[in-house]
């Protein structure tokens, strides 16, 4: 297939930034496509893993940060495990997620960044994840409050969802980590 990239894109910067953050050398990819073949979501996305690498090699710009695989990737790491040149493609995706969040251009299917923020909010508050608050926060934010609601009574009855927030964690240590990492996980 023909791959087209935007002219005069800022691609050199994107490739360099991705390579730096993920500590990978994209020049070593020779397009064997084992990553794309093993990827469980290859068939669902516009550009499978090997094509993303090719686009980066060819100098694609920030428009690539909006490609759907960035947030549809399951982080299963099959790509990395099978790459003959040990290119950490899952790490490339994590780098693209971080850059997309920083630049405010994330186009997530299912709003994973919101989910991540609500999850990390509870970690910041309690030192441990608090599922109930995280799920309600995420579902309120997406307006999908009724999804899965029918499972809730059974989960509560079976003790598969804690009602009270977690206790016992060293909260001050976690706060220190969040402050130092200056995380993009905080509420915005």
């Amino acid at each position: 297939m023909t791959i087209r990239i935007k002219k005069r894109s800022t691609g050199k910067n994107l490739r360099t930034e991705v390579e730096k953050r993920a500590e990978v050398d994209l020049a070593t990819c020779y397009q064997c496509k084992k990553c794309s073949i093993g990827c469980p979501v290859s068939g669902l996305v516009a550009s499978p893993p090997a094509e993303i690498i090719r686009r980066l090699q060819l100098g694609a710009g920030d428009e690539l940060l909006q490609t759907d695989l960035v947030w549809t990737c399951l982080s299963c790491e099959t790509c990395y495990a099978r790459c003959p040149n040990e290119i950490n493609f899952a790490g490339i995706i994590d780098a693209m997620r971080a850059i997309a969040l920083e630049k405010g251009v994330a186009r997530p299917a299912g709003n994973s960044p919101l989910f991540n923020r609500r999850f990390l909010d509870t970690v910041k508050s309690y030192g441990r994840a608090y599922d109930l608050q995280m799920i309600v926060g995420y579902k309120l934010g997406t307006g999908k409050l009724m999804d899965d609601v029918e499972k809730f009574p059974t989960m509560l009855k079976k003790g598969k969802m804690a009602i009270l927030p977690p206790s016992g964690a060293d909260k001050s240590k976690v706060k220190r980590i969040f402050n130092a990492a200056k995380s993009k996980g905080k509420s915005r």
Binding site: D94, N116, F119, V123, G127, A169, G185
Partner: peptide, 15 residues
């Protein structure tokens, strides 16, 4: 006093 490992939310956000 163990604390959360950050799970997928942390690695998708900040290394």
């Amino acid at each position: 006093g163990w604390t959360c490992c950050g799970a997928s939310a942390a690695h998708q956000t900040d290394r």
